[in-house]
Simulated scan of single mutants.
Amino acid sequence: MRLGIIGAGAVAVLHAEGAAVLDGIELTAVCDLRADVGARVAEPWGAAVFTDYRQMLAAGVVDAVVINTPHSLHKEMVLAAAAHGIHVLVEKPMATTLADCVAMEEACVRANVVMVVGLIQHFMGEKIALSAELCSGRLGKVLMIHDYRSTDYRPAARPAWFFDRAISGGGAFINIGAHCLDRSIWIGGAPAVRIAASTLNRFGAPVETDGTMEIVLENGVQVRISIVSDTPHHVDEMLVVCENGTITADPRSGTFVEIDGTCTQIHESSEQDIQHAFTAQLKDFAAAVDGAVPSVDGEHAKHVVELVMAAYVSAQSGVPVDVGIAARPGVSLQDAQ
């Protein structure tokens, strides 16, 4: 599979390194508006450099692409790839509206190409260990999840497009919150039926910099997500409360289980975990192109976007918002649970 990367930003090198070690995948092209930025990712692997993704798609040099660009550009790029019969791994969030998500899916179905959304949490070692432990049944049913993650949404700390709602779709919720929503509903074991959210705009930023989301899943699991900007110490921890104990996952340290006062570490994080995750995600994408079922399906990816949009509505209105099954006519929240 000849692979191209559109957008040579921060994680592009992780995709390139993954392609370099996987049999049957060759990085053949990198596109970025700045040729020098694209060249830094392309040159170690002898890949061609483009500054116009349309020219790259039309050049006949790729069979699949990774779309690693600002959020609102995903739709037009996926549609263009599909029109050329090119498979797509599109970074999260899938898009900035549900309508765009549907249009992307429909275009790929018509073109008979595979589209997978890059939700990297499913491939992180500490989250894999967390999921495996829950699946073992030792901790019993999941009852509650607290997901706390710090970020930095000071305008000087990020490229300008992150603060342009027309391009980014929002602030900390659609960017960092998409990761938290993804992993919380995955680990919680069911889609969400209700979300209540609040946001803060600090540092003079035109988008939200901080916020909280309180979510009820279809199976009754309660989820609380906290995203805080510019904290004294970086935080990225999931705490899962179960019938027989608790479990935490943190990419800096690992995964820990506590049962009746005894703590056991079941995964120790390493500096290679992030690269391993991107390599595994690319391998999963290549398998999907060959006909396998991807680890993360399109319905889940769309649900993450749905929840981000509902969180914005809730934060603006000050009231909870029903989503998914609870939002369907004739179905109450009690019925959904």
Rank of each mutant, 00 (worst) to 15 (best):
M1I: 10
A10D: 11
V13F: 14
A16W: 13
G18P: 02
V21R: 14
G24R: 14
E26V: 10
L27R: 03
D32N: 11
A35Y: 01
D36F: 01
V41S: 10
D52H: 15
Y53M: 03
M56C: 08
V62P: 03
D63E: 15
I67P: 04
N68K: 12
P70G: 05
H74E: 03
K75A: 07
E76P: 11
A82P: 05
I86E: 01
H87P: 12
V90Y: 01
E91I: 13
E91M: 09
K92F: 06
A95F: 05
T96P: 02
D100I: 03
M104E: 06
A107H: 08
V109A: 14
R110S: 14
V116E: 00
V116M: 04
V117I: 12
F123L: 00
M124A: 09
A129Y: 00
A132D: 10
L134N: 06
S136C: 05
S136I: 07
G137V: 11
G137A: 06
R138K: 13
G140C: 07
G140P: 04
V142S: 09
D147K: 06
D152V: 02
Y153M: 15
Y153R: 10
F162H: 14
S168C: 07
N175T: 15
I176Q: 03
W186R: 04
A190W: 05
R194M: 13
A196T: 00
A196P: 00
S198C: 08
T199K: 15
T199N: 09
L200C: 09
F203V: 06
A205D: 02
P206F: 01
E208R: 07
T212E: 14
M213L: 14
L217H: 01
G220L: 08
V228P: 08
M238A: 07
I247H: 00
I247P: 01
T248R: 06
A249C: 12
D250S: 10
D250M: 07
P251A: 08
S253T: 15
T255C: 11
E258H: 11
I259A: 08
C263G: 11
E268S: 12
E268N: 09
S269V: 04
S270V: 09
A280H: 12
Q281E: 13
Q281Y: 15
L282H: 09
K283F: 08
A288K: 06
D290K: 14
G291Y: 07
V293H: 13
D297W: 12
H300Y: 13
V304L: 04
V305F: 04
L307H: 01
L307I: 00
A311F: 02
A311P: 02
Y312W: 03
V313N: 10
S317C: 08
G318F: 05
V319A: 14
S332W: 14
L333A: 11
Q334C: 08
Q334F: 15
Q334L: 12
Q337R: 15
